[in-house]
């Protein structure tokens, strides 16, 4: 593992960590379905930044670009499906509260 220059990117690590913590906090602490999705989006953005950084540090910029573009496409697909499900839940329940999703008990 040759990570020359890894030290110069300390602010990058902090940004990634912050995004992770924020995303996880949104998913765990929020009771709103849309906020849960935003939290998920933040998590995926953090991963995207991590892969860009990884590609740069290992001199694999081409591979990292391909990965990140694929990642963005898949993320959009997941978010569209999730958004559709949330809209349907809102039409059924007239509410976006996760505490009302209790009919199935894990």
């Amino acid at each position: 593992m040759n990570l020359a220059g890894a030290q110069t990117f300390w602010y990058f690590y902090i940004a990634i960590m912050l995004l992770f913590v924020m995303g996880a906090y949104y998913i765990i602490a929020s009771f709103n379905l849309i906020r849960v999705l935003i939290g998920l989006e933040l998590l995926i953005k953090a991963v995207t930044l991590l892969s860009i950084l990884t590609g740069y540090l290992t001199h694999n910029e081409g591979l990292a670009q391909a990965l990140v573009i694929t990642l963005i496409v898949i993320e959009v697909v997941i978010m569209v499906v999730a958004g559709g499900i949330v809209v349907c839940i809102y039409r059924n329940n007239k509410s976006l509260d996760t505490r009302k999703l209790k009919e199935l008990k894990g």
Partner: peptide, 25 residues
């Protein structure tokens, strides 16, 4: 059911992607 599956499985993919990034590193 679909929403629960989606959220948990998206968290799973985030974990897998972080692992893929670390393996790439």
């Amino acid at each position: 059911g679909a929403f629960k599956y989606l959220i948990l499985s998206a968290i799973a993919t985030v974990m897998m992607l972080v692992a893929i990034s670390l393996l790439l590193l």
